[in-house]
Amino acid sequence: MHIQTAAVQTLRDHEHGAVVPPVHLASTFELDAATEDAAYAYQRGSNPTRAQLEQVLATLDGAEHGFAFATGMAATAAVFSTLQVGDQVLLPASVYGGTFRFVDKVFPSRGLTGRFVDDLGALTDADFTPATKMVFVETPANPTLRITDLRRLVELAHRHGALVAVDNTFMTPVLQRPLELGADVVVQSATKYLAGHSDLLAGTVTTNDPALAEAYALAQKAQGGVLSPSDSFRLIQAIKTLPLRLDRQQANAEQIVAHLREHDDVTTVFYPGSHSEDEARIHASQATGGGAVLSFELAKGLDRVRFIQALRYPVYAVSLGGVESLICRPATMTHEAMTPQARAAAGISDELLRLSVGIENIDDLIEDLDQALAAAR
């Protein structure tokens, strides 16, 4: 089954023939008095609607197990919950600011260490110690869109007994399938492309490892950061249009990238594969497209604030992946938790702008960018 079909052919209400599954809002469920057993007992542990969503998530990622959380960071926290005191995690220097905050602020109190690496693609055996238990990677990285060779990283990490966790938010299973490349776990902020309308928060985790699956189920039950039945239902419905939305968003982004690269008022444009021919080759080998996020810097002398204020369509706001275009300044918005030194190491300048491209008409978007650039001169 192709992913476009899998996204639509979700579970149905076979009892009543409804093409849309019902929402089960119950917080508690009746048990058998003799055995005190049932498929569901309490919503935090499991819920029929959330279970349906988790089956969809697993199917899309080609996984045996799927888990839905209340936010993307709750999902990331669940992935980190498998670590023990003394463990080390390797991460890219250019990583989502929320993940950086978790490593910087929460890891120390748990006896964990995180090491931020300028280029995960340059890791060697010497970078691993007995304490290194996980490599957490974003490819493309946020917001520099740097690419990491997942096959090479998996082989290297597994040789040292370390897990590989991939944040696949930018690509989604439509464009990149890390589990099929050997990764142990995939995490996504479903708030972004999976939900796609900037109107709900959610996070997902998928894996084929039964031991990890048991740990993530425990994280749901013990920590309680689960997705509600109502939002689970809404996410099921949103996923049905994910391939269509992303196809349009990516087509728009590709045209904007080409336009900005030829524009005198723009000096640098980052898009997956733009850093080097080697990264372009790697990305083409492990993904089927560049996605719909790009970053760029204005030419020297242009007024960044005037440019943003002049835009009519992209909204100046955090987040990405919605049907509407969004633009942000990572240094002070998505990555404000990072120190200036950390941002510099990650290649995130104060002038870098990140554009999440929506499904608007491409001519309108390009015309808007051009008039805003003219206003910034």
Results as ranks from 00 to 15, higher is better:
residue 214 E to Y: 01
residue 208 N to T: 08
residue 256 I to H: 05
residue 211 A to R: 14
residue 235 L to A: 04
residue 212 L to P: 03
residue 261 R to L: 03
residue 246 L to G: 07
residue 256 I to N: 04
residue 216 Y to P: 08
residue 209 D to I: 02
residue 271 Y to Q: 10
residue 273 G to D: 06
residue 243 P to S: 07
residue 236 I to F: 00
residue 217 A to G: 07
residue 270 F to K: 01
residue 243 P to F: 09
residue 289 G to P: 11
residue 264 D to F: 04
residue 229 P to A: 13
residue 234 R to I: 07
residue 283 H to Y: 14
residue 222 A to Q: 12
residue 230 S to F: 11
residue 262 E to A: 15
residue 242 L to F: 00
residue 225 G to A: 09
residue 235 L to M: 02
residue 271 Y to L: 08
residue 206 T to D: 01
residue 289 G to Q: 11
residue 218 L to M: 07
residue 226 V to R: 07
residue 267 T to S: 14
residue 234 R to K: 14
residue 233 F to D: 07
residue 283 H to V: 00
residue 241 T to K: 08
residue 257 V to G: 06
residue 228 S to W: 04
residue 235 L to K: 03
residue 287 A to P: 04
residue 275 H to N: 02
residue 234 R to V: 00
residue 266 V to W: 09
residue 208 N to W: 02
residue 258 A to C: 04
residue 268 T to Q: 11
residue 239 I to T: 15
residue 282 I to H: 09
residue 232 S to A: 15
residue 255 Q to W: 00
residue 216 Y to K: 11
residue 221 K to H: 13
residue 227 L to Q: 10
residue 248 R to N: 04
residue 279 E to M: 05
residue 258 A to M: 10
residue 242 L to G: 02
residue 253 A to E: 06
residue 266 V to D: 12
residue 283 H to K: 00
residue 222 A to E: 13
residue 290 G to D: 09
residue 251 A to F: 00
residue 214 E to H: 01
residue 234 R to S: 14
residue 220 Q to T: 03
residue 265 D to A: 14
residue 283 H to W: 15
residue 241 T to Q: 11
residue 258 A to D: 15
residue 280 A to K: 14
residue 207 T to Q: 05
residue 214 E to R: 10
residue 205 V to I: 13
residue 285 S to M: 08
residue 271 Y to V: 14
residue 236 I to L: 15
residue 240 K to H: 01
residue 289 G to R: 08
residue 271 Y to G: 09
residue 232 S to L: 01
residue 288 T to H: 08
residue 213 A to Q: 04
residue 250 Q to M: 14
residue 220 Q to A: 07
residue 231 D to T: 09
residue 285 S to W: 02
residue 255 Q to L: 13
residue 290 G to Q: 15
residue 277 E to M: 03
residue 226 V to G: 01
residue 290 G to P: 09
residue 212 L to N: 06
residue 283 H to S: 06
residue 284 A to M: 04
residue 272 P to Y: 11
residue 263 H to W: 05
residue 254 E to M: 12
residue 267 T to G: 02
residue 236 I to W: 03
residue 217 A to C: 00
residue 228 S to L: 08
